[in-house]
Design a protein around this nucleic acid. Structure first.
Lengths: 200, 200, 200, 200
DNA sequence: GATGAATGAGATTTCATTCAT
DNA sequence: TATGAATGAAATCTCATTCAT
C-alpha cells in the first residue's frame, strides 16, 4: 500500500530496459534497423510497445543508445584485451584484442556493419563513430611505427581493412569461417613484422 | 499518328527500364534499400510509379534485377581487367582488377555493402551471392597456390578480406581514403609473395 | 511513525486535490482540454499520475469537476458583486459583476470558451450549462424589464451577447484590449436605458 | 489504355479534394479539431486515409487549408453583402452582411469559434487571423466615425463584440435562437445612431 | 506503353488508465 | 495515501501496390 521504494522502481526500470535493449539488439542484428519494428521488439522483449517509449524517445534513440552502450563495452573489452601479455608485440596484442572482442559481440558487429553504409540512419552518430575508428587506426599506426614499419600510416590502413574484412566475413557466416586459422596466420605475419622483417 | 512498330515499342521500353534501373541504383546506394521509396525512384527516373511495376514485379525484384545486372557487369569487367598484362603475376592482376572494378561501380558497391548484412532482403540472392564471392576466393586461392604460398586457402581468405575491407573503407569516404598508396603497397607486398618470398 | 489520523489523511487528500485542480485548470486553459495530458497535469501539480485517478474517475470527470467548482465560485462571486451598491440600477450592477468576475477567473473563462463548441467533450455538462447561461439571461431580462425596456427578452439576448463577446475578445488578448473603456461605455449606455431612455 | 489526360486527372483530384474538405469541415465543426480523426474524415468523405495525405501534408495543413479557403469565401461574401443597398447607412450594411455571411457558413463559424482559443493549433494562423478580425474592426470603426459617433474605436469594439457574441450564441443553438429579432433590433439601434442619435 | 489517383496495411508514437507496492 | 512502471488502444502518417484510362 505504500508506494514502491526508489530502489524497487529503479530495478524494475533497469530490468525492463535491459530486456528492451537485448531484444532490440537481436532484432536489429537479425533483420536490420529498418526491418525491425517496435512491435516486434516489444514482443521479443516481452513488454508493451508503449514501455519502449518510456525508456527511449524514439526508435532512433533506441538504436543510438544500443550503439553507444556497445561501443563503450567494446572499447573497454578492447583496452583490457590489449593490455594482455606484455611480452607480445603491440600489433599482435591489438589483433588478438580485436578478434577477442569480435567473438563476444557478434550481434553488435552485425548491426554495426548493417548500418554503417546508411548515412541518414546514423546522422546522429556521425560525430561519434569516426572517433572510434580513428582511435583504432591510430593505435595500429603507433604500434607499426614502433615496430619500425616503413609507411606506418598506409600499413595501418591495410591492417585495419584486413581486420575489418575478416570480421565482416566471419560475421556473415560464423559457422563456416576459418577464423582460428586466419587469425593465427595474421599474427604470424605481423609478429614477423615486429621483429623487423618486411611485410611484403 | 501511326501506331508504333514493335521495335519502336521495344526500344522505348528498354529506355524506360534503363532509366529506372539507373535511378534505383542511385537511390538505393545513397539512402539504402528500405529508405528509398518507389515514388522517389520514379521521380528520379522521370517516369510514373506505375511504370516501374510494368518492368518489375515488386520493389524487391527491382533490387534483385539491379544486383544481377551489376554482378554480371562486374564479373565481365573483372575478367577483362584480370586478363590485363600477362607479364604480371596473377595475384597482382586480380588485385588490380578488383580495384579497377571498384572505382567504376561505386554506387553498386555501396548498395552491396549496405544490404549484405540484411539476410531477409537478400533471401532471394542467397543462392546466388555465395557463388559470386566463392568464385573470387577461388581465383585468389589458385593464384596464391600457383605462386607457391603455403596455406593458399587461408591466405586467400585474408587477401579477400583485405580487398573487401579496403574497398569498404574507400566507399565510405572516397574523398579522403589513400586508395592509390594502399593498393600500391598491397601490390608490392603480393608481388614479392609471388616471387617466392614469405608474406609475413 | 504513528499512523496518521483520519483528519490528517483528509487534509492531505484535500491538499492534493486542490493542487490537481489548480494545475489542470491552468493546463486546460493554456493548451485546451485535448492537448493537456494527464502526465503534464500531474507534473505541474507535483503529484503522481495515479493520484489523479484516486480523486477523479477519468480525465473527463476532472474537467467536469473543475467546471462545476468554477461555475459554483463564479456564481457566488457574481451574486456578491451584483449585490454591490443598491443605488445603481440593476442592469449596471449585473454588467459590473460580470466583468469583475471575468477579471478574477481568466483561466476559467479561457477554458470555458475553448471548450464551449465541443459538444462531445461536454456531453455530461449539457444538462448543466444551459441552466447557468439561462440564469444570467433571465437576470438580464428581469433587470431590463424592470427598467421599462420594450422587448426585454431580445434586448437581454443582445446584452448577453455583448458581454460574452467582450469577455471573449478580452480573454484572447488581455494585454491590449481596452476593457476599462469598453465597460465604461457599456455602463454609460445602459445607465441611460434604465432611466427610461431608448437603447437605439 | 492511353493514360488519363491532364484534365481528367485534375478533375478526379478536384473531386476528391472537395469531398475531403467538405467532410473535414463537417467533422471539425461537429467534434472539434482534436476529436476528429483522419480515419473518421476519410470514412465520411468516402476515400482512403492515404488519399488525404496526397492532398494535404498533415492534419494541421488540412485545417489550415479549410480555414484559408473559408476566410477567403467569407471575405468575398462579406464584401458583396456589404456593397448591398447604398441607401442604407454603412454600419447597418456591415451588420447585415455579417449575419448574412454567418447563416451561409455555419460549420465554418462553429469550427472557427472552436479553435479560436487554442493558440497552439493555430500557430500557423497567428499571422493571418488578426488581419482578418482587424479588418472588420476597422470597417466598423470607419462606419461609426462617419456617422459621427463620439468614441468610434471603443464603440466599434463593442459592436464587434456584440456581433461576435450573437453569432456564437446562434451557432450554439441555431434552432432556438431568435436571430431575426435580435438582428432587427440591432439594426434599429444602429440605424438611429447613424442619424446622429446617441447609442445609449 | 504509360500515367498517377487511389488504396489500405502497417509503422511509429502518444496517452488515458491500471495496478502492484 | 501515494507512486510510477506498465499497458494497449488509437492516432497520425508512409508507402508498396493496383487499376481505370
Amino acid at each position: 500500500m505504500s508506494p514502491r521504494t526508489a530502489e524497487q522502481n529503479q530495478s524494475l526500470r533497469d530490468e525492463s530496459r535491459a530486456k528492451i535493449v537485448a531484444a532490440a539488439l537481436a532484432q536489429f542484428s537479425a533483420h536490420g534497423y529498418d526491418r525491425s519494428s517496435i512491435k516486434q521488439i516489444a514482443a521479443a522483449a516481452g513488454v508493451a510497445q508503449g514501455l519502449i517509449y518510456s525508456h527511449f524517445a524514439s526508435k532512433e534513440e533506441l538504436l543510438l543508445a544500443i550503439f553507444r552502450q556497445s561501443v563503450h563495452d567494446v572499447r573497454r573489452s578492447f583496452t583490457e584485451a590489449e593490455a594482455g601479455d606484455p611480452a607480445r608485440p603491440p600489433v599482435v596484442r591489438i589483433i588478438e584484442a580485436a578478434f577477442s572482442v569480435l567473438r563476444g559481440n557478434l550481434d553488435f558487429w552485425r548491426l554495426s556493419y548493417g548500418v554503417r553504409m546508411q548515412q541518414p540512419v546514423l546522422a546522429a552518430l556521425q560525430a561519434e563513430l569516426p572517433d572510434w575508428t580513428a582511435a583504432i587506426r591510430e593505435r595500429l599506426r603507433a604500434a607499426l611505427a614502433e615496430a619500425g614499419t616503413e609507411h606506418p600510416e598506409i600499413e595501418a590502413a591495410i591492417l585495419f581493412a584486413t581486420i575489418d574484412g575478416v570480421a565482416q566475413h566471419y560475421v556473415l557466416d560464423p559457422q563456416h569461417y576459418p577464423l582460428e586459422q586466419v587469425v593465427a596466420s595474421l599474427i604470424q605475419r605481423y609478429k614477423g613484422a615486429s621483429d623487423g622483417h618486411s611485410l611484403g
